[in-house]
């Protein structure tokens, strides 16, 4: 297990390195790299001076190493619009996004796994078929469209929920969050639900398919023949077996939730880092774009790593295969 985990960590570091090259190439080299580092209103002389000062007249690999060195020190430049360090700007907005993604993940996992399990156990039942059918539909719905539909129904027609913004005035364990007050939850409800829907549909389908496959296996029949209780069969002989694939999906999808929150935050004017990214793209605030992309990549890599290691812990067969 230790060896397998080490391999994973090494692979993750390589991934990070590869992605930093990609981001560097994509953002710094397409278009004029100097525009990225000096305010758009700078004149020719200033730009030339900046280029020299920043080593942009150097060969590419040298430039990349310089970029990497700065990035490792946490310096990704200053935002053109606010003049604050780009990383600081992102970190200010990160809690709101993570809160949203976490709430959506809780909804998707909390509802998706039980619904998927139930659909498999009651396979063929009309309600099970309806659940799976709705899941297929949820699969096809673009996130922003769900968000708008929710606004149409719950804000405009029924006037139950606020149509946008975040209320994090209450604190929980010293953390300013929407989760600590009714007002905050009311603001969170629609963004979280619309963000969760796609993942909910996915988790229902994945859980269903994995459970159906597992229920057909001999060891489940054998478990019934040994007189185990349904709860024990569900936990030890179904859930444990589908745990690894399920965890993979959930982990990957949590990352996707963070990425997709860009869309949800735009619809609901949620002050997170996704909304910040769109603003940054529109104002060509490139240091912020770079900071966002690199942070997201780091976040993703960490999630993938955590999932891989958790899977190694769950499934002994993986340990065998990868440990050698």
């Amino acid at each position: 297990m230790g060896y397998g985990a080490l391999v994973r960590i090494a692979q993750s570091l390589l991934t990070l390195l590869a992605m930093s090259v990609l981001v560097f190439v994509a953002i710094y080299l397409i278009g004029n790299p100097i525009e990225l580092l000096v305010p758009p209103q700078a004149n020719q002389a200033e730009m030339a001076r900046a280029a020299q000062a920043l080593g942009l007249d150097q060969p590419l690999p040298v430039q990349y190493l310089h970029f990497l060195g700065q990035a490792l020190k946490g310096d990704l430049g200053r935002s053109f619009t606010s003049n604050a360090p780009a990383l600081t700007v992102i970190f200010e907005r990160m809690p709101a996004t993570l809160e949203l993604a976490l709430a959506a993940a809780l909804i998707a996992v909390g509802l998706g796994i039980p619904l998927g399990l139930w659909s498999a156990f009651a396979d063929g039942h009309p309600a099970s078929r309806a659940t799976l059918g709705l899941a297929t539909l949820g699969f096809s719905m673009p996130t922003f469209w769900i968000a708008l539909l929710l606004v149409m129904v719950f804000s405009v027609q029924l006037e139950w929920l606020p149509s946008g913004g975040r209320d994090a005035s209450a604190t929980l364990l010293g953390w300013r969050t929407s989760l600590a007050s009714w007002q905050g939850l009311a603001h969170l409800a629609m963004p979280a639900c619309s963000l969760a829907l796609f993942k909910l549909a996915l988790i229902i389908r994945v859980t269903y398919a994995a459970t159906i496959d597992t229920l057909r296996l001999d060891h489940v029949r054998q478990a019934r023949a040994r007189g185990l209780s349904p709860a024990r069969i569900l936990w030890a002989h179904v859930l444990k077996n589908i745990g690894a694939p399920l965890l993979n999906v959930i982990g990957l999808e949590f990352g996707a939730l963070v990425a997709f929150s860009v869309v949800t935050e735009t619809v609901f004017a949620w002050p997170g880092m996704g909304r910040l990214l769109i603003d940054a793209i529109n104002t060509l605030d490139r240091p912020v774009i770079v900071a966002y992309l690199l942070l997201t990549v780091v976040l993703f890599t960490l999630i993938n790593l955590a999932v891989d290691i958790a899977c190694l812990a769950i499934d002994p067969r993986l340990r065998e295969a990868r440990g050698r």
Binding site: D218, H219, A236, H237, K240, N241, R317
Partner: peptide, 10 residues
């Protein structure tokens, strides 16, 4: 089939 009668993760 003894290959499948035991749960591989237990």
């Amino acid at each position: 089939d003894p290959l499948t009668a035991l749960n591989p993760v237990l």
